[in-house]
Amino acid sequence: MIDQSMLTNLKNELRRGTQVLAVLSQLDKTQYGYSLLQDLEDKKVNIEAGTLYPLLRRLESQGLLKSEWDTTESRPRKYYLLSEDGKEVYQLLLNEWNTIAKEMSNLFEGEK
């Protein structure tokens, strides 16, 4: 019997690193927090709200995202968009992801 909580933990660990990539990939157009959450959900990438919002703040403080408050509507919203640095980092991370995917699939196929 596999310990389910251990399995969940391992899965989460594996996914954690991909969250930044997922978020950066969707911010070539401006989005606010909740729209990004739904956008990712529509594409079957589930990220918890309690994880996404702090992550957006972190990426912004690292200079990868720029943000702007829109107060014209009844609900004020904070919109995010990739900065120049963000675009570059996204590209580099994407390359890294592809390398990892290739390395991994080589490993798995070698096992057969």
Binding site: G33, Y34, S35, A49, Y53
Partner: peptide, 13 residues
């Protein structure tokens, strides 16, 4: 700032 963000996000949800 976090308070404003959080409030906006909650309202959106």
């Amino acid at each position: 700032e976090v308070g404003k963000e959080l409030l906006a996000n909650i309202n959106d949800m």
